[in-house]
Design a protein around this nucleic acid. Sequence first.
RNA 1: GUGGGUGUCGUCAAGUGGUUAAGACCCAGGGUUGUGGCUCCUGUAUUCGAGAGUUCGAAUCUCUCCAUCCACCCCA
Length: 417
Amino acid sequence: MLTKAPKGTKDILPEASPKWRYVEEKFREVCRRYGLEEIRTPIFEHTELFQRGVGDTTDIVQKEMYIFEDHAGRSISLKPEGTAGVVRSYIENKIYAGTKPAKVYYETPCFRYERPQAGRLREFHQFGVEVFGASSMMADAEVITLAMDFLKSVGVGGLELRINSIGCPECRSNYRKALQDYLRPHFDELCEDCKGRFERNPMRIIDCKVPRCGEIAKDAPRMLDYLCEDCSSSFEELKSNLKASGVEFTVDPGIVRGLDYYTKTAFEIVTNTIGAQGTVCGGGRYDNLVEELDGPATPGIGFGLGIERLLIVMEATGAYLPDAEKTDVFIAFIGDAAKAEAQKLARKLRNEGLRVMLDVAERNVKGQFKYSDRVNSRFTATIGDDELASGCVSLKNMETGEQKLVSEVDIPSVVRG
RNA sequence: GUGGGUGUCGUCAAGUGGUUAAGACCCAGGGUUGUGGCUCCUGUAUUCGAGAGUUCGAAUCUCUCCAUCCACCCCA
């Protein structure tokens, strides 16, 4: 137990961290180009924030949150998603009083108590983007385009953008009624899951994978036919804005968000290469959320992008991911005097920016060379009595095997070629 | 929360009731005292996820638990 990470958590080990840093840098870079600033908010918030923000009846809040009481008796929850905390911060810090639209990005761990499976962990990490204060679909298109550009910049292939509109609360409730009216005569034929969904979230029934439910749902009314004038024209605008940005998409009426705050635009970027949990990025518009959390009425649009899932797709599709950095110079030493000189030289070279290794286990020369090879060093410098006497070091190119005496001051230039 | 698969050394993996649990890779040390990647030698599981049971005898059979993977659900 002690030596086992909690279920659904994963260590990011030294061999994986260069890959994480790589996608993190790419994400930051794309956000920079789109004019976003980074925001960092706490890993936990008051439980009530998620109850109100994400929605009291959602699965996430009802059964997936890590909730605990702090020592003063406050109910605290680990964030199950990124948007609520950012919205809270937006309101608390009166960011709405500043320049609008406000555009931010973040990277955060999220926590959901679910059964782990391929592409699903209890602690996972998201990149996220939120844009506040723009009701125009141009904002939606820009946010989606940002996500697509990021994914393109890390070289992942086989991804598909799917968009939908889930309308505003008014047209959604009209639709919901129409859908239930249509489904009601078939209620007994639905699978158990869908019977449960009938009241809770009938829109999910449309996407049910059980064949019988699919047949029934085939002729069900479509959300897109029930959009009000405003929502409907917004959706058309979204499509034309995406086209203007040169982003390809498909309309997927089955996209339903599991978080209550979404309105109008809902989108997912999916892959079929990593198993059942194929949604790499998901997001949408939330025009009422800020107000529902007691802020001034402010429209918003954003997305969350699962980093673990992204990395899995990248690996599955053969996208480039960096390995551990090579060591520039390994310094082998023989004898105590040489050891002192090696330490001195190592520090000097490190201060010049080189990646330098020594065998702090103090093995013999052969062991040091073996170690040097293991850490992928490009050069090995050897210091022993001979070198000490000559004032130079033997510098061996580990790839060609060529070795020559060079002055210590020349090492950086030799190493850098 | 519900299904199903799997659990033998760090990793892959043989073994399916009978005395000492293959092998490969990795790792560590060494091949006489200053040189890696190749090669050679040596070493590393009193133990088969844990516990209980059946049996003269179990890694091999039974039960319980645990872990892990995949799927449902849900979503990133």
